[in-house]
């Protein structure tokens, strides 16, 4: 009988063992929303954008570079003699809104974007299967020169616009996929062969190979492309869907992206609607995107 008494006295001690303290804490923690982070390493997938924006107060300098086509042979040093460059700055106004400006050497295009995170993938209290970022951009061609403008050319003809929804899901910590419905409006086109408004759907993804290295791919499928023979008949080059593969290497504040793609241009209008290279015909360009992030304002 004494043993039973002892048992009863000790019972609360066992019941209230250490594990319970932790258990109690665990119970309170479950009501939080867990937001997915680092769906992609950078703000660019290959040629186009990812859902990622810059965090509030951080400035990214982006240097993008594409060589000529590899099939240029030894005379062109397999494309290395040619180079197309975009220099850009991306800045995070808030954690969800960032702004970007850039200058492309091809066609001397100045471009700018606003990127806004509409939805963020999350689990827990609030469950959201996808992240969605909206992108709105404008591109202004400085070429041709004022003096070289053809007859009837207006300065609004230099402008083109991009509207894009970037929809992504980080499926596992290593695999992320993205879908990019894209609308492009060009103020000036050769109406005989091409429409002002063009729609494309992009697909892409990244697969992390190690903690700092990832493989990426991106493909933009044009839903209503201009006919290549028609383009040829008005003296334009053939056009293809833009395809690219990349390797992302991340070191501290830098992201290096080494890419192989069939386009030498670096802004939505030209990448998606004016890619002249046939990837499987050997028009492959080596290129890289290098970013460096500077934290201008400290995170509270």
């Amino acid at each position: 009988m004494k043993k039973i008494i002892l048992l009863f006295i000790l019972l609360p001690f066992f019941a209230n063992a250490q594990e319970d303290l932790l258990g109690e804490l665990e119970k309170e923690k479950t009501k939080e929303t867990d937001y997915t982070f680092a769906t992609f390493k950078g703000t660019r997938l290959v040629n186009g954008h990812t859902i990622e924006t810059k965090n509030a107060g951080s400035l990214e300098f982006i240097f993008q570079h594409r060589f000529g086509a590899l099939d240029g042979g030894l005379y062109e040093m397999f494309g290395l003699d040619e180079a197309y460059v975009r220099l850009g700055l991306d800045y995070g106004i808030t954690d969800n809104l960032s702004v970007s400006i850039g200058r492309n050497s091809a066609d001397k295009i100045m471009d700018g974007y606003l990127k806004y995170k509409i939805l963020k993938q999350s689990s827990g209290e609030k469950n959201m299967p996808f992240s969605i970022t909206a992108l709105g951009g404008a591109a202004y061609s400085i070429s041709p020169k004022k003096d070289d403008e053809p007859e009837g050319f207006k300065s609004v003809d230099r402008l083109a616009y991009t509207g894009q929804l970037l929809i992504a899901r980080k499926i596992t910590s290593n695999l992320s996929l993205q879908l990019m419905p894209t609308f492009i409006h060009k103020n000036a086109v050769n109406k005989f062969a091409e429409k002002n408004d063009q729609i494309a759907i992009g697909f892409g993804g990244r697969l992390k190979v190690t903690k700092s290295v990832a493989l990426t791919t991106e493909y933009y499928y044009r839903l209503d492309p201009p006919d290549n023979d028609l383009l040829a008949s008005v003296g334009d080059e053939k056009r293809y869907n833009a395809l690219g593969f990349g390797i992302d290497i991340e070191t501290g504040g830098h992201v290096f992206q080494l890419v192989l793609t069939n386009t030498s241009s670096l802004t939505e209008r030209t990448v998606i609607t004016e890619t002249n290279g046939d990837f499987f015909g050997g028009d492959i360009h080596l290129g890289f995107n290098v970013t460096r992030t500077f934290q201008l304002k400290k995170n509270k």
């Binding site: 001690f13 209230n16 063992a17 250490q18 303290l21 932790l22 804490l25 665990e26 923690k29 939080e32 867990d34 982070f37 680092a38 965090n55 509030a56 107060g57 951080s58 954690d95 910590s173 903690k211 700092s212 991340e250 501290g252 504040g253 992030t293 934290q295 400290k298 995170n299 509270k300």
Partner: peptide, 27 residues
């Protein structure tokens, strides 16, 4: 009893540099 327990989410660590915070969590 002298028992103590604490619990924290790693993601709740705040860094001055947000990018560093992402690397801390991811890598």
């Amino acid at each position: 009893k002298g028992d103590v327990a604490f619990l924290m989410s790693i993601k709740d660590f705040q860094f001055e540099k947000k990018l560093m915070q992402v690397h801390f969590n991811e890598k």
